[in-house]
Computed example of a mutant assay.
Amino acid sequence: MAAEPTRQWSKEQLQSDDVTKKEIIVFLQENASEQFLSEFNLMGNVKSVAKSAKKEKMIKAYNHLFETKRFKGTECAENVTQQLKDLKVEDAQDKVKKKKPEVTVSEEPPKYSKTTLHKGDKINFPKKGDTVHCWYTGMLEDGTVFDSNIASGSKKKKVTKPLSFKVGVGKVIRGWDEALLTMSKGEKAQLQIESEWGYGKKGQPEAKIPPNAKLIFEVELVDIE
């Protein structure tokens, strides 16, 4: 039975530039069994193997060799078969983990709806923490306007400018935070926001928004920083 080789490199060394792919491949080809080399596609010319392999995979093979002790002359057919099965299961699990989307903090269904009135550029979308600049008009369900930064009628002489705030971080009602993250620069949309994502049970008396009011906004996303 062949003597078990000793580890040549630590985890830190393997991750650094001090150890190259070719060095790992040479070590594996000299010490691992043929079946092991075949599984990790390490058979053949070192230069050719290194060209098509990623270093991360070589490090994984290096560590796996010492974990399974599948050195030259130490394997039996039964062990090889079982290890092959284990490796395939492990790889399949890794692929599932990579494909599985991140679970959001809350899977609560959205409490707003959006109707696009004018399409944006479909390229520039705000991210959480970005500063957005918006024109807007807010209405109750009966059409009563309770707020707007767009000059109209008797307000034409009043200087107005887009509302600016950091989106997605709680600076405005949740309905706005959630909806604006789905809009692209230049888009204009009508938002219908349930009271839970608006001003809730308290409403906002100073703005004449009653408790539990469903809100309707026309919002135009004019710029993103």
Rank of each mutant, 00 (worst) to 15 (best):
L42T: 00
M43Q: 14
G44R: 06
N45E: 12
N45S: 13
N45H: 07
K47R: 11
S48K: 10
V49E: 03
V49K: 05
A50W: 09
A50I: 07
A50S: 15
A50G: 14
K51N: 13
S52Y: 12
A53V: 07
A53P: 02
A53K: 13
K55N: 08
E56Y: 02
E56C: 03
E56H: 06
K57L: 11
K57S: 15
K57H: 05
M58N: 01
M58H: 03
I59P: 03
A61W: 00
N63F: 14
N63S: 06
H64Y: 03
F66P: 01
F66W: 02
E67N: 08
E67T: 01
T68Y: 02
T68S: 03
T68C: 02
R70Q: 13
R70V: 01
F71H: 10
F71K: 04
K72R: 10
T74W: 03
C76K: 06
C76S: 13
C76N: 10
E78P: 00
N79E: 12
V80D: 01
T81L: 13
Q82F: 11
Q82A: 14
Q83A: 03
L84P: 00
K85E: 15
D86M: 14
L87E: 04
L87Y: 15
L87G: 06
L87C: 09
K88D: 15
V89H: 07
E90C: 07
E90L: 13
D91V: 03
D91A: 11
D91Y: 08
A92M: 11
Q93E: 11
K95F: 09
V96K: 05
V96G: 00
V96I: 14
V96M: 06
K97H: 05
K98G: 00
K99E: 07
K100S: 05
V103D: 10
T104A: 12
T104P: 07
T104G: 12
V105Q: 05
E107R: 08
E107G: 11
E107C: 08
E108C: 06
E108D: 12
E108Q: 09
E108R: 13
P109K: 10
P109Y: 06
P109A: 14
P109Q: 07
P110C: 04
P110N: 07
K111N: 10
K111A: 07
Y112G: 01
Y112D: 04
S113D: 09
T115E: 14
T115G: 03
L117D: 01
L117G: 04
H118R: 12
D121V: 08
K122P: 01
I123H: 07
N124T: 11
N124P: 04
N124C: 03
P126R: 14
K127G: 02
K127W: 05
G129Q: 13
T131Y: 11
T131G: 00
V132Y: 07
V132Q: 02
H133K: 11
C134M: 05
Y136F: 15
T137V: 15
T137H: 07
G138F: 04
G138V: 03
M139G: 05
M139I: 04
L140D: 07
L140G: 08
L140C: 11
L140N: 13
E141L: 14
E141V: 14
D142L: 09
D142R: 06
G143I: 05
F146P: 05
D147N: 15
I150T: 08
A151W: 06
